[in-house]
């Protein structure tokens, strides 16, 4: 049996998790204060997933760039590939928070959405 110590990245509480594994099978997860922590630990041992946040170019907005976020976590190993696509996105104001800008970003199943509203300048 091996024991892995992880830090949950779901929220700033940063719970210290302990995962006991036998081969690829997870025997126990402890240290989490909410169900998200257990889900995170189980996933982290298979393929780490992260929310991606970045900005995209926006035309006629009150700022030059618009903050964006994936609506669910995507594989950590695909972050740079995802960023290559994020860099090509260009939107026009006005934009509403939560508006989908890219469906199924690089086939990850996650949508890229606006993380704030931005008025037309």
């Amino acid at each position: 049996m091996i024991t892995k110590e992880l830090i949950c990245v779901n929220c700033p509480m940063g719970c210290r998790l302990k995962v006991e594994m036998e081969g690829k099978e997870i025997l126990s997860i402890t240290g989490n204060t909410c169900p998200r922590g257990a889900e995170y630990a189980a996933q982290e041992c298979v393929r780490p997933m992260r929310i991606l946040t970045s900005t995209v170019k926006i035309d006629h907005g009150t700022h030059r760039v618009l903050p964006v976020i994936t609506d669910k976590a995507i594989p950590l190993d695909l972050m740079f590939k995802a960023m290559d696509e994020v860099r090509t996105v260009r939107v026009t104001a006005p934009v509403a928070e939560g508006q989908v800008l890219v469906h199924d970003l690089i086939g990850s199943g996650a949508d890229l959405i606006a993380s704030r509203s931005m008025e037309k300048n």
Partner: peptide, 16 residues
């Protein structure tokens, strides 16, 4: 992301 889990029980970006 990581804002709002206590206040809104959701994981939000700062601007959101």
């Amino acid at each position: 992301n990581g804002f709002g889990l206590q206040t809104f029980k959701e994981q939000l970006s700062g601007p959101a």
